[in-house]
């Protein structure tokens, strides 16, 4: 993993760098599996090795491929890095031994989650119960951050006015003729991808999975469709206004569940009061907020991809007419 990272430092061709980053993401995911963090590995595999590679590629397609060879003062930078690294390694000598049970991280609140969460929340996946129930407020904040980032990308990259329409149809036609095998395979695969995303979404209580992972996988399915069938076709299938509405709806759903527990006499995001049976209430609350998370993540990632890719086509059109 370190050697892949070293290669990333030296490579000048940005596309090769991005490919290496994809490999790096996959290696990180397998490391997480080895560390028993299955939920995290799931997320890293779909985000690090999938979506982030894709977004970087789209961004490179719109900027420049090669890196400018001149680097200024690499020696000074190297010095700073070596000194900082040395200090950090010196600091690790005070850290607890790897994997030891007496480490401070294992002796405080985590013990309570492991012992009591099944009686209090009633779902076997502790990660999901901590994420959605005990620390539900943090997760709410994170969903809002993702939503805000989506709005930011939308604001930065969207241009008003429908330029480049004619150009889009030409590219669509070209795509149809070129990648016949790819398109047929994708046509078979995409329903299963979406189905798998839904499984991950609703099975998150019992196995690894949940709203975040499901959202990313679902968005990956949509993006695959958009890449192979052309942006124009994808825009017709997935309405832009609708998807923006869905992004907001996810956050709203999450917040509404929180407010509902207010109305029922509990504190914010306390699902036990949602139904008469507290365990059933917790179940309902977690499923609802995971749904909210899933909706927002899917919608925001799709929005980000569409605004990046849409930008490119508009640019091409301008270059064509400007020449």
């Amino acid at each position: 993993m370190v050697s892949v990272a070293v290669a990333i430092v030296w490579m000048k061709d940005l596309i090769a760098v991005v490919m290496l980053l994809g490999i790096y993401g996959l290696l990180t995911a397998s490391f997480f599996v080895a560390m028993d963090a299955v939920d995290v590995a799931f997320t890293e595999a779909s985000v690090g090795a999938g979506i982030s590679t894709l977004l970087l590629l789209v961004a490179i397609a719109k900027t420049k491929r090669a890196e400018h060879p001149v680097r200024h003062k690499p020696m000074l930078a190297l010095l700073v890095v070596v000194v900082t690294g040395g200090l950090l390694i010196y600091g690790t000598f005070d850290m607890p031994i790897f994997g030891i049970a007496e480490a401070p991280a294992h002796t405080h609140v985590a013990q309570r989650y492991i012992e009591d969460s099944y009686a209090e929340v009633g779902i076997p996946n502790i990660v999901t119960s901590v994420l959605a129930s005990y620390r539900g407020f943090d997760t709410f904040g994170e969903v809002v951050v993702i939503f805000t980032a989506g709005i930011g990308v939308l604001g930065l990259l969207t241009v008003s006015g429908g330029t480049g329409r004619r150009n889009q149809e030409i590219t669509t036609k070209k795509m149809h003729e070129q990648h016949k095998v790819l398109r047929i395979v994708a046509k078979i695969l995409i329903p299963f991808m979406l189905l798998f995303a839904l499984y991950v979404q609703f099975h998150g209580d019992y196995g690894p999975g949940g709203g975040f992972q499901a959202g990313v996988i679902f968005a990956a399915g949509i993006i695959l469709y958009a890449m192979l069938f052309g942006m124009n076709t994808a825009r017709r299938v997935i309405n832009q206004t609708l998807i923006q509405l869905i992004a907001a709806l996810g956050v709203l759903l999450y917040g509404a569940v929180g407010m509902l527990s207010f109305v029922n006499g509990g504190t914010f995001l306390d699902y036990s009061v949602l139904l008469t049976d507290p365990i059933a209430g917790q179940h309902l609350g977690i499923i609802l907020i995971e749904l909210g998370v899933g909706l927002t993540v899917t919608a925001v990632i799709t929005i980000i991809f569409f605004s990046f890719a849409g930008r490119e086509e508009i640019q091409d059109y301008r270059n064509d007419t400007g020449a």
């Binding site: 963090a37 995290v40 997320t43 982030s52 975040f212 990313v216």
Partner: peptide, 15 residues
């Protein structure tokens, strides 16, 4: 499980 939760959300926020 607690660091897992933190990192899980951090990855998605990171992207």
């Amino acid at each position: 499980p607690l660091p897992h939760v933190l990192i899980l959300t951090a990855i998605v926020v990171g992207i």
